[in-house]
Design a protein around this nucleic acid. Sequence first.
DNA 1: GTGAAAGCGCTAACAG
DNA 2: CTGTTAGCGCTTTCAC
Lengths: 349, 349
Amino acid sequence: MNRKPHVTLSDIAKQLNVSKVTVSKALRGHPDISRETTRLVKKVAEELGYTPNFAARNLSSRKSNTIGVVVPKIAHFFFSSIIESIYDEAFYNNYDIALTVSQENAEREKKHIETLMAMRVDGVIVSITQETKDSTIFEKVLSRNVPLVFMDRVLQVGGTSQVTVDDRGGAVKAIELAISNGYTKIAHIGGYKEINIGKNRYEGFAEAMKKHGLPVDPDWVIHGGFGEDDGYQGFMKIYKSGKMPEFIFAVTYPVALGVYAAAAEVGVRIPEDLDIICFGSASINKFLKPALTYVDQPTRTLGKAAVDLVIEHIGETENYQPKLIEVPTELVIRDTCIKKKSAVNAAAK
Amino acid sequence: MNRKPHVTLSDIAKQLNVSKVTVSKALRGHPDISRETTRLVKKVAEELGYTPNFAARNLSSRKSNTIGVVVPKIAHFFFSSIIESIYDEAFYNNYDIALTVSQENAEREKKHIETLMAMRVDGVIVSITQETKDSTIFEKVLSRNVPLVFMDRVLQVGGTSQVTVDDRGGAVKAIELAISNGYTKIAHIGGYKEINIGKNRYEGFAEAMKKHGLPVDPDWVIHGGFGEDDGYQGFMKIYKSGKMPEFIFAVTYPVALGVYAAAAEVGVRIPEDLDIICFGSASINKFLKPALTYVDQPTRTLGKAAVDLVIEHIGETENYQPKLIEVPTELVIRDTCIKKKSAVNAAAK
DNA sequence: GTGAAAGCGCTAACAG
DNA sequence: CTGTTAGCGCTTTCAC
């Protein structure tokens, strides 16, 4: 496919017998230029079908007006919802977004970040993969003075800002709800301990158990990934141990779904035989039977906060100070995590 | 935040006492340059932490190596799944993706396309919004000789390629399954008739009904959007009419979910009182009770085909011929669209 | 094999 | 208010 030469500033300038600079300024609404000239320039630009060339603009202005984003997955409610809010907030602030998806693959994540650097994005928002351990690439970003904000899933790298969820507090709330409903034999199908969300949710679980004098059975703590499959496997592992808990705290919504599938397969009824709560939700939760009671993560807030934070950093010149923002969670009560059977009578309202 | 000057080709050239050109060629593996020089250049580039500047590259080479993508929504399985496959296929072919989300808003869609043009993307893939009617912007893209491929949701614009699903055929299959299961009172909660997927699914429905000598009751054909809410409203409209069908063919998976919600609210049981089938699915379908029987849309195939097609067009010089690709659907049988109650005995296996 | 010259389209800095 | 001068960092001829 061959390209027609594009209309450029000079074309407009020629037609009006003014200079390129005048046109450039007029188009950007620069106050230097008279209203009349501006009007004319815009008119001709329209007529000629002028489209600015961002590459040229970026090259000469040394900024791209673009924020790079790297997320591990897109086909999950949590991320797709965050991404929508990122687009909205960027749009509102007149920034473009360069979105990349690492597919939970650290190698790919690295490549994407390199691409974003090559695009000279003004800032980067990243939610790391399950397997990311190496911080080299992130340090490279920082060494280039490109603001980096970790979102939800963070890596400890000096000098980065982060926007996270109060995972620990949320987990405590979840477990305390379970305990208040009469459960004591509580298991946790958790994420990798190496990643903050896995670690913090586990710690919140452990903390709450300890506080209420309940034992944490090592066989009832599973660490793995954050997908449906991991929930399935986790449940099966516990189930096959022959020692069933009364309650499961699942590290993510997909993990809880995996538990549903596995439980159905072996005839364990939820919530009658095994009750459950999880972190996060999805728009389809209201159609799930039973609908999961969950710790709500404010995805829109997360996305917006991340964008606002990078933009803030982009604006800063010298006195750049990393910031840590933690957004609170909320319990949303649905059909699981209900009063324990044997406790129902005693606690009937 | 201030920027350190970036390492450039010249920096590498100076260090090695060669010219910029040599470095540029070496870095791109151009056969002009000797193996030894290439090795050296790459080594120094690595040491200096060189990152190419895409803006400069694009400007001088007049191509961006990027494919622009515009989708109406991202937080739905159908699109997020397509998007993942688009990224995969682009990655595989060494293209970058510039993804934008129109949020079902035609205005925003137009703006995004303008941005993509300004980025001088090499090609564009778009799935239009529910409300897109005006083809001006798309004609503008074509007039610039930028290949345009419509994906799934298409607008009739001369000269564009499109990758679609066999919506009509899929709808026929769905209705025929329902009929073969004994249903005759069949309603359709459909999409807008102005958009191909809404129109074709409706037509497939009508065609199958006619073929089997069944009447299409106008009160049982609702046209609206493609979201959960539309399904909810559609059901309610039918329900309030006081004349209930036995079966509903929902235009999308979210619409079917809306029907589930509405039905539950008024105590209509699915599939006992009202059976249902829909177009499309989601990864959570297996956790839905009852899991929906659906017409499967091969999302990965769609995304891959769209990318392959733009790339093909990008490669073409003069003899550009638009192509229409239609991918077939498949019925996936789950817990709905079962034998009609009164027909069960007669048809017991 | 290598390099010098020219320019992609735009903006920044300064001069009038 | 408008224009001139100088690049941004790279690739593309085309000459050596």
